[in-house]
Design a protein around this nucleic acid. Structure first.
Lengths: 175, 175
DNA sequence: CTCCTTGGTTCAGTGAACAGACTCACGATG
DNA sequence: CATCGTGAGTCTGTTCACTGAACCAAGGAG
């Protein structure tokens, strides 16, 4: 959000958190990272974010320890941005935010999250109603819901139509 | 966040939610409302937010059905802003965001949330570990934690030092 | 050598946030 | 009656961040 300066006076964990992930686009980048997006260009086309802002956000998220930059190819040098444990810890927040958005403002169910292996749809707090346990992020399977656009314009959106686990790297076919 | 325009292309409940509560200050206003703050001036002194921004946010939150403006006194006319059910439904999100902030960036525990009557501290998902149920927002008791500033500069901060239930109107002593 | 891809940086324009002064309605005070 | 104080805003000039478009660099591909 613009600047975090003023929140510093707040003496509150929520304000502290918002200083870091409260800026525009930041939580959407974390969401995409949870969905398996890792590369600069994939964030770019999927979010439609200005390049300068994306570069700034990736920089901030990296210095805050939410993403790590990892070179996955030497020549030409290519880096990918991967969530740390601190980053994946935002899953419950994003989950409840998304649930709130759909319940109160969205008509259609766009994505369904299930307990991989068990197949049961997750409850409101990310728990598996069948197993009675909180499902680790890596064991959450994401499948498209009935309301999703079946033909997204961007290749990242198309890649996300295939069922996959959270955090698992996304395979984007070249245009 | 600046404008919600661009998020509209996102086809995602999280983006939808952020269009509404993702702007700077908005979630802090909702947090204060959960804590029992209801009046324009109390939001103002507690948040240190520019007056024009506060007026704009209250307006937005009201038209989005998250707050309702309620006249509690005819002469002089005085209104208060009270959370709707849609607003209180943001509690799990704020709870997990605050937990994330404290675990990863805050050293001290500033506020403790307990199941009123039972006295047990809430778990990560707002449930009562003793009773095994999710605690309704109105049954959450907030008490100051060990790390809180014992002498806040503003009267609202001082009023929040007294244990109270969420949503219960805050009694601010006049300066 | 020239073009293309990836991952950026730079730049000017615009809109939002900021601090502080001003307004307005009403009640209380002298 | 004139003045002061308070709650709830609006107005104004400045600063700052977001935006879109252009530019840059390193390493293949043809």
């Amino acid at each position: 959000m613009a600047l975090g300066k003023d929140y510093a006076t707040q003496d509150c964990s929520i304000a502290r958190a918002l200083e870091i992930v409260g800026e525009r686009w930041t939580l959407l980048i974390v969401r995409d990272a949870l969905y398996g997006v890792r590369r600069y260009n994939d964030f770019l086309v999927h979010l439609g974010i200005p390049r300068a802002v994306l570069a700034a956000r990736l920089q901030t998220l990296t210095t805050e320890g939410i993403l790590v930059k990892h070179r996955y190819q030497q020549s030409p040098p290519r880096d990918e941005y991967v969530l740390t444990e601190r980053g994946t810890a935002l899953w419950p927040t994003l989950r409840s935010l998304g649930l709130w958005g759909r319940e109160h403002f969205g008509e259609r169910k766009l994505r369904v999250f299930r307990h991989a292996g068990c197949g049961t749809e997750l409850g409101a707090y990310g728990e598996c109603p069948a197993c009675g346990t909180v499902v680790p992020v890596a064991d959450v399977e994401m499948v498209p819901g009935p309301g999703v656009d079946p033909h997204p314009a961007d290749p990242v959106g198309r890649a996300l139509l295939r069922p996959k686990r959270l955090l698992e790297p996304l395979e984007v076919e070249p245009a």
